[in-house]
Simulated scan of single mutants.
Amino acid sequence: MKIIGLTGGIGSGKTTIAHFFRDLGIPVYIADKEAKALMNRSKVIKRKLIQLFGKQAYIDGQLNRSFIAQCIFNNKSLLSKMNAIVHPKVASHFRQWLKKQEGPYVIKEAAVIFENQLQSQYDLIITVVAEEKNRIKRVMQRDGSTEERVKAIIKNQLSDEEKIQRSDFVIENNNLRDAKKQVLNIHNCILKKIAQELR
């Protein structure tokens, strides 16, 4: 079964695109969502994150997301240490999930495929891009962030140009109807590739 990576910068609309693939009957794994769930569920992760960030990392047993976000913002060393705790657990959870899936391929939505040099884990990679003004607006509405903060996050991430160069497919997500058509085209393209390989 093929593993298709779905990535893109903050506010590009990766999860919306992932849902379009799900509507086509493709199993979808959203790494960020699963990571958050594991950070609340796994005793090992909890213990290690408290060691790393202190007791403030959790409030009433739930991850203190705003505190963690504040700690890792502009602190790459702390972010790397956190990722070293969380990512292996997510990878293991994904492998278990994958065993239960059926179909020609699965979509794994992950924000930092290229940043963490994880390209080799995927058969093909789709990058979602959107105009910066749309991205900023989406994140401000979703997270209640300020424009300055969103711009700072975008600046910290790998540029769309760099991601596009390393991707097999690109989806421009500025208009949902257009994006849906692009998803269908890519879906058919992937199925065609798989059929050719099976010949």
Rank of each mutant, 00 (worst) to 15 (best):
R177M: 05
D160Q: 04
I113V: 14
V44E: 15
A130Y: 01
D168Q: 05
S159G: 10
N75S: 13
K89H: 12
L6F: 01
T7F: 01
K89L: 08
F94Y: 15
N116R: 14
K180P: 00
D60K: 15
A69Y: 05
A179C: 10
N64D: 10
D160K: 02
L63P: 12
K76D: 07
T15W: 08
R177C: 02
N134F: 13
A69S: 14
A35V: 00
R142E: 02
Q62E: 10
G5I: 00
V150L: 08
K43G: 01
A111W: 05
G103M: 07
I154Y: 03
I17R: 01
R47K: 11
G61I: 06
E109G: 02
E161W: 04
K163V: 11
P88L: 05
V86I: 15
N188Q: 13
I10W: 09
F53D: 02
S92N: 07
Q141W: 01
E148R: 11
M82Y: 09
N83A: 06
E148D: 08
R135S: 09
Q51E: 14
H93F: 15
S92A: 13
Q62A: 06
R47H: 09
I30W: 03
K133C: 06
N175D: 14
A18S: 15
K99P: 02
G9A: 09
H19C: 03
T7R: 01
V129N: 11
R47I: 07
G11Q: 02
E148V: 09
N174P: 09
E34G: 00
V139H: 03
N156R: 00
Q119I: 10
V129R: 12
F53Q: 03
A18N: 04
L79T: 01
Y58F: 14
R166A: 13
E147M: 04
E132N: 11
F67T: 01
A18I: 02
A69V: 03
K76P: 11
S159E: 14
E131I: 05
G61K: 11
H93R: 15
H87T: 09
Q117H: 13
E131W: 07
K2W: 13
G54F: 06
K2Q: 09
E148Q: 13
L198D: 02
E109T: 08
